[in-house]
Every structure is written in C-alpha cells, then in structure tokens.
Design a protein around this nucleic acid. Structure first.
Lengths: 156, 156
DNA sequence: TATTGTTATACTCTATAACTATA
DNA sequence: TATAGTTATAGAGTATAACAATA
C-alpha cells in the first residue's frame, strides 16, 4: 500500500498564530475595502490616512507613515492625490522645513465624518462579539506581539 | 486664534481593533517574507501552500485556497510554478476530474522540512511571549472575529 | 552625515470577470 | 446549471534604492 506523508494533527496549522492572523486579516481587508468603496470610494490606505488625521488632528507625515505602518512610497503617492483632491493640506513645518504637517480640509473633515459612522458600526459589530475580558486580553496580546514582529531574525 | 479640529482622545485610534490588526499584520508579513527569502527563497504564498501540504498531507486545491484564504487567481499561478519547479504534483481526482489533488514531491517535502524549523522558532518566539491564558483567549477571539469578517455590510 | 519626503522600478497580492472542462 | 480551475487585466500594496532639500 502507499503510505501518505504524516499530517501534523497534534500541532495543527490553524494553531500557528501567524497563519490565523493572515487568514483573518485577508478577510478583514477585503471587507473594509468593500465597505469603503461603497461608502465613499476611498481605498484602505486613503482611509487610514484620513482616519488618523480626523482622530488625532494635524500630524506630521512621517509620524503617520511610521505609526500606522504605511509604506513610505505608497504613503507619498497617496498623499499627493489626496492633496490634489483637496482632501488635506501639506505644509512645511516652520522650525524644520523637511517635515510636513498634514491637515484635513473642510472637504476632508466632511469625508471623515460621513465615513466614520459606517466604520464605527463595523467596529462595534466586531468588538461587540467579545467580552470585555477578551477585548482587554486581545489588545494586551497585540501590544506584546508588535515589538516581536520587528525582530530581524530568530536564528538560534 | 486658530482652533484645531478635536482629537478623539477618549476613543483613540489605536483602540480600533482593525487598525491594530492591520499594523501588526504589516509587520508580521514583512518579517515572514524576509525570513523566508533568507531561509529558502520562497514567497509567503508559496510557503503557505507548502506548509499546508506538509502539515495536512495531500489536499484538494480548492480546499487550500478556501481555507487558507488565498486568492483563486494567485493560487493558480503559484501552483503552476511550484509544479514546474517539481515541488508538488497536481493530479485530477478519480471520482471528480474537476478537482485536483495536491501532493508534495520529495523535493517539496525536503523544502518543507528545512524551512519549518526556522518558522517554528519564530512562532515559538511569538507565542512564548504570551501566557497560556492569553494564547487561549487570543485564539478564541480569532474564532469569533473570522465569521464576522465575512459579513457583507453593517448597514443599520 | 543624517533625516524627510519624492520618485522610479519591480514585484506581490487582490478583485473581477471571461473562459474551459467537467459534473 | 453549477463547480474547479485557468487566464487576463487592472488596481492596490510592498521593497529597494536613488534622489533633492534641509538640518
């Protein structure tokens, strides 16, 4: 008879934390892209920039791309079109002209305020399925994993 | 004086569960891609296919793309090159010739077995930072979120 | 020299849809 | 009709590096 290679049932692939995260994230991204497209025609990256500015107020460009973990090149290109569309403004900092301060325009604020409720409904649906303890633990785990995700290698 | 728009400090953006997941996932993906490239020259998608087959044994193509949430077109293209490289075989099912059974070749198994330890070290580093309770709760949360990520809209 | 941001290039992944072959 | 899989195309995101302006 032909012997099949063993299936590692004692350590199922679905218990690989990165596998589960990747699978969930694929679904969440597709869902967010679909909702955003219907609600306001924005791409995910555009929304992440607008959402940051809507929440936190004027922010330096470098801070958003670093803290929201958006690729520098992609960020710069998206910024260009958002400025061209009059959604936000980019002004050089008075004290350091290399840095640019980003601000939502009135149009950008309107866009933020009309899109936010849609995304908040989704957020409530997601977090509402969790107990307060689960939510707290989940964020604690994310806090622990993020620094580990920046480690270069895990050579023994 | 100029009044800045309000910052929503009472509901910080970092408490938006999807924002945190996206940020973490961006880092984890970059880390995995880097490690895989160094270890065996595989792309993330290639590894996800090989890992599935290495773990679970021969599997129908449609099951992998659905359960691992890999885009159908991308999956088909990656499969083509993996077969051409002799990493796996694709044979039509006896009872339903539309379906294809995927199997690692000897070369594919070798690739799986040399890459797995590297990825397992990383996995241990990630999960090792968590308490057993945190890990259990984290998977429970992922289980709850996944079906919600498939909902089409959250219209009121 | 180092940092902020832009641009170019190439590559990976995703979405959509048309297509085939089987059922 | 419906499903498994392929192919084509366009768009979104990522990686890398070269570059300009500023510090």
């Amino acid at each position: 008879m032909t012997r099949e290679p063993p299936a590692y049932d004692d350590l199922p692939l679905t218990q690989f934390i990165t596998f589960r995260l990747a699978r969930l994230q694929a679904r969440l991204n597709a869902q967010a892209a679909r909702i955003l497209k219907d609600a306001s025609g924005l791409s995910l990256t555009q929304w992440r920039i607008i959402a940051w500015l809507g929440w936190r107020g004027p922010t330096r460009a470098s801070d958003i791309s670093r803290l929201a973990q958006i690729d520098k090149g992609l960020f710069s290109r998206k910024l260009k079109t958002l400025v061209a569309q009059g959604v936000l403004t980019s002004e050089p900092d008075k004290t350091d002209q290399r840095q640019h301060m980003l601000r939502l325009t009135a149009e950008g604020t309107r866009l933020f305020e009309t899109t936010l409720p849609v995304m908040q409904r989704r957020q409530r649906a997601l977090t509402g399925a969790l107990t307060p303890e689960e939510l707290t633990t989940f964020f604690a785990v994310l806090d622990k994993l993020e620094p580990l995700a920046d480690i270069e290698t895990f050579d023994p």
